[in-house]
Design a protein around this nucleic acid. Structure first.
Lengths: 208, 208
DNA sequence: CTTTGTGAATTCGTTCACAGCA
DNA sequence: TGCTGTGAACGAATTCACAAAG
């Protein structure tokens, strides 16, 4: 990997491009110009070109970008070589919903496990995803070598669960609990409080 | 309202500050310094001060900021004077989960309605939220004067539903469907594809 | 002292504009 | 001609650093 800093925004856009390219492939398109991809992704053509510059993929003025090749190049850039093993902590409505998404639409997942406290679902298996009791979380995460976790747990428990699983080896957390969790330098946390996003829409739709 | 442009990032942070202040209030704290608020929000003290400058709230070097007053000031700045009327379109697991959140944790919601295609829940009322058939969506949105909508519908339907509800008067959409929807200038759209966020965590946790 | 409020400096991200190419 | 790739210009957002205040 190169050492230049890759800004988060650029990564977000690359992920979007990849998905759009994948759709285009199934629509039978074989190439696309920056202005068209820009339109689909809701960004400017110059930005598309800059972003692709960042991953050293080059197109041609005549045909733009090759859909298939570009998708692969982005994949090469984004995906870690080893597959991802994921845990979903908390299988309420939101957790179940995320499990569905992951099963149907995920990518290079090599393993997925879930945790809950509801005795009636523990030890069940949904979509190859075994459900464990939260009490066993450290043990299972170590044994299964889980590196990423999604948290959909009550806010009182989010921080302590996060601390536990990080101690057990988790490197990245996507936190849907409505609290900001704090973790040591080097651990990736994305706090995604759905009500805060909604409030943002309220603001911009109300005051513009 | 003032006419200077308010950047999205600043609004996001103000929303976070407000929430933290609300927590602090219930913990009995009456004032707070910028560095402490910064720590809780995971930003720098200078940024907190800048952000508050933007809403013209001023503290004192001796006591920092008054928790209660600052929360009110942010509210005054963020909240539209009229209450919000919200629609949730699609009551699958994710939609139901969002309805729960809205009911328990929402703010200045004056009205909430939902839409689905599942006959078995149509005409039911959950938490004062009446469930209508999607076929009636334009009529109901007009009648109830809904201005904001959350979309949790299959991706094939997202764009056309969005077009319909915007025609019926909706000004802002929070779109959880896994497609980017495009709407006319002036309509606020927040596309929030949960899998894309997850991929971002994969990237940063895998490559750093 | 410690902390706020803020102009100035800096860093970061985006867009412009054009050379080079098919 | 119409597009890409990219240096340069621009603009936005963040941080620095210090005067003012208790």
């Amino acid at each position: 990997m190169n050492l230049e800093k890759i800004p988060e925004k650029k990564i977000e856009r690359l992920i979007i491009y990849r998905k759009l390219l994948n759709n285009l492939k199934y629509e039978g398109k074989s190439n696309i110009f920056s202005h068209k991809l820009a339109e689909l992704a809701d960004v400017t053509p110059a930005q598309v070109r800059r972003d692709l510059m960042g991953i050293h993929y080059t197109g041609s003025p005549a045909n733009g970008y090759d859909v298939d090749e570009l998708e692969k190049s982005i994949g090469l850039f984004l995906d870690s070589s080893s597959g991802i093993s994921l845990a979903i902590v908390g299988l309420g409505k939101l957790g179940r919903s995320l499990l569905d998404y992951c099963y149907w639409r995920c990518l290079n997942l090599s393993k997925i496990v879930a945790f809950d406290v509801n005795e009636s679902i523990i030890n069940q298996t949904i979509y190859d995803c075994k459900i464990y009791h939260v009490n066993d979380i450290e043990k299972v995460i170590k044994k299964e070598e889980i590196t990423i976790a999604i948290l959909t747990v009550p806010q009182e428990e989010a921080q302590q669960i996060a601390d536990k699983i990080v101690a057990a080896g988790v490197k990245g957390i996507l936190n849907y609990s409505p609290v900001i969790i704090h973790l040591p330098e080097g651990i990736i946390v994305e706090n995604l409080d759905m009500m805060l996003v909604l409030e943002k829409v309220f603001y911009f739709a109300g005051n513009n």
